[in-house]
Amino acid sequence: MVWTLNKDRPLCPQICEQICVGIAGGEFQPDQRLMSVREVAVAAGVNPNTVQRAFEELERSGILYSVRGSGWFVGADISRAKAVLEAIIGEKTAAYFKEMAALGVAPEAVKAYVKEWSE
Protein backbone atom coordinates (compact mmCIF):
# COMPACT_ATOMS: atom_id res chain seq x y z
CA MET A 1 0.00 0.00 0.00
CA VAL A 2 1.33 3.41 -0.98
CA TRP A 3 0.51 6.21 1.45
CA THR A 4 0.09 9.67 0.04
CA LEU A 5 -0.55 12.24 2.74
CA ASN A 6 -1.15 15.93 2.33
CA LYS A 7 0.39 18.03 5.09
CA ASP A 8 -2.22 20.79 4.69
CA ARG A 9 -4.91 18.55 6.21
CA PRO A 10 -5.01 16.62 9.49
CA LEU A 11 -3.19 13.31 8.93
CA CYS A 12 -5.45 11.12 11.06
CA PRO A 13 -8.55 11.35 8.80
CA GLN A 14 -6.35 10.88 5.73
CA ILE A 15 -5.09 7.56 7.12
CA CYS A 16 -8.70 6.54 7.83
CA GLU A 17 -9.67 7.41 4.26
CA GLN A 18 -6.82 5.47 2.70
CA ILE A 19 -7.60 2.37 4.71
CA CYS A 20 -11.27 2.66 3.64
CA VAL A 21 -10.16 2.96 0.01
CA GLY A 22 -8.03 -0.18 0.48
CA ILE A 23 -10.99 -2.06 1.94
CA ALA A 24 -13.51 -0.83 -0.65
CA GLY A 25 -11.09 -1.65 -3.47
CA GLY A 26 -10.53 -5.19 -2.19
CA GLU A 27 -6.88 -4.72 -1.20
CA PHE A 28 -7.89 -5.60 2.36
CA GLN A 29 -10.48 -8.39 2.65
CA PRO A 30 -13.03 -8.80 5.48
CA ASP A 31 -11.45 -10.46 8.54
CA GLN A 32 -8.00 -9.93 7.09
CA ARG A 33 -5.38 -8.85 9.60
CA LEU A 34 -4.04 -5.37 8.90
CA MET A 35 -0.47 -4.20 9.37
CA SER A 36 0.38 -3.22 12.92
CA VAL A 37 0.17 0.38 14.06
CA ARG A 38 3.95 0.67 14.03
CA GLU A 39 4.26 -0.90 10.56
CA VAL A 40 1.79 1.59 9.15
CA ALA A 41 3.57 4.42 10.99
CA VAL A 42 6.92 3.48 9.47
CA ALA A 43 5.46 2.87 5.98
CA ALA A 44 3.56 6.16 5.96
CA GLY A 45 6.28 8.05 7.85
CA VAL A 46 3.88 9.28 10.51
CA ASN A 47 3.60 9.20 14.27
CA PRO A 48 2.36 5.86 15.71
CA ASN A 49 -0.08 7.79 17.94
CA THR A 50 -1.73 9.21 14.82
CA VAL A 51 -2.14 5.73 13.33
CA GLN A 52 -3.49 4.42 16.63
CA ARG A 53 -6.10 7.20 16.68
CA ALA A 54 -7.05 6.45 13.07
CA PHE A 55 -7.53 2.73 13.85
CA GLU A 56 -9.63 3.57 16.92
CA GLU A 57 -11.72 5.95 14.84
CA LEU A 58 -12.32 3.20 12.26
CA GLU A 59 -13.24 0.79 15.04
CA ARG A 60 -15.86 3.23 16.34
CA SER A 61 -17.29 3.43 12.82
CA GLY A 62 -17.45 -0.37 12.65
CA ILE A 63 -14.96 -0.55 9.78
CA LEU A 64 -12.19 -2.30 11.74
CA TYR A 65 -12.19 -4.42 14.85
CA SER A 66 -9.35 -5.21 17.21
CA VAL A 67 -8.47 -8.48 18.87
CA ARG A 68 -6.46 -8.08 22.04
CA GLY A 69 -2.96 -9.40 21.45
CA SER A 70 -3.38 -10.08 17.73
CA GLY A 71 -3.97 -6.67 16.23
CA TRP A 72 -6.43 -5.04 13.89
CA PHE A 73 -8.80 -6.72 11.41
CA VAL A 74 -11.12 -5.63 8.64
CA GLY A 75 -14.79 -5.79 9.68
CA ALA A 76 -17.20 -8.13 7.87
CA ASP A 77 -19.42 -5.28 6.70
CA ILE A 78 -17.56 -3.23 4.14
CA SER A 79 -20.50 -0.98 3.24
CA ARG A 80 -19.18 1.83 5.49
CA ALA A 81 -15.78 1.73 3.79
CA LYS A 82 -17.53 1.83 0.41
CA ALA A 83 -19.56 4.84 1.55
CA VAL A 84 -16.32 6.63 2.50
CA LEU A 85 -14.90 5.85 -0.95
CA GLU A 86 -18.07 7.19 -2.59
CA ALA A 87 -17.78 10.39 -0.54
CA ILE A 88 -14.14 10.86 -1.60
CA ILE A 89 -15.05 10.33 -5.26
CA GLY A 90 -17.92 12.83 -4.89
CA GLU A 91 -15.64 15.44 -3.33
CA LYS A 92 -12.96 15.02 -5.96
CA THR A 93 -15.52 15.31 -8.76
CA ALA A 94 -17.03 18.43 -7.22
CA ALA A 95 -13.55 19.94 -6.80
CA TYR A 96 -12.81 19.20 -10.47
CA PHE A 97 -15.95 20.95 -11.64
CA LYS A 98 -15.13 23.92 -9.40
CA GLU A 99 -11.63 24.19 -10.84
CA MET A 100 -12.98 24.04 -14.37
CA ALA A 101 -15.57 26.72 -13.51
CA ALA A 102 -12.71 28.91 -12.24
CA LEU A 103 -11.11 28.47 -15.67
CA GLY A 104 -14.37 29.65 -17.24
CA VAL A 105 -15.50 26.25 -18.50
CA ALA A 106 -19.25 25.67 -18.26
CA PRO A 107 -20.46 22.31 -16.84
CA GLU A 108 -21.76 21.26 -20.27
CA ALA A 109 -18.34 21.88 -21.80
CA VAL A 110 -16.69 19.96 -18.93
CA LYS A 111 -18.80 16.94 -19.86
CA ALA A 112 -17.44 17.14 -23.38
CA TYR A 113 -13.84 17.24 -22.07
CA VAL A 114 -14.51 14.26 -19.80
CA LYS A 115 -16.00 12.30 -22.69
CA GLU A 116 -13.06 13.11 -24.92
CA TRP A 117 -10.58 12.01 -22.25
CA SER A 118 -12.31 8.76 -21.41
CA GLU A 119 -12.21 7.63 -25.03
Binding site: K7, D8, R9, P10, L11, C12
Partner: peptide
Protein backbone atom coordinates in the same frame (compact mmCIF):
# COMPACT_ATOMS: atom_id res chain seq x y z
CA UNK B 1 -1.39 19.50 18.42
CA UNK B 2 -0.33 19.30 14.77
CA UNK B 3 -3.64 17.96 13.50
CA UNK B 4 -5.39 20.85 15.27
CA UNK B 5 -3.09 23.25 13.44
CA UNK B 6 -3.93 21.66 10.09
CA UNK B 7 -7.64 21.64 10.95
CA UNK B 8 -7.75 25.21 12.23
CA UNK B 9 -5.47 26.91 9.76
CA UNK B 10 -5.88 24.62 6.74
CA UNK B 11 -2.14 24.61 6.26
CA UNK B 12 0.91 22.60 7.13
CA UNK B 13 2.94 23.28 10.27
CA UNK B 14 5.77 24.47 8.04
CA UNK B 15 3.57 27.09 6.37
Amino acid sequence: SVDEIRQEHGKSVDE
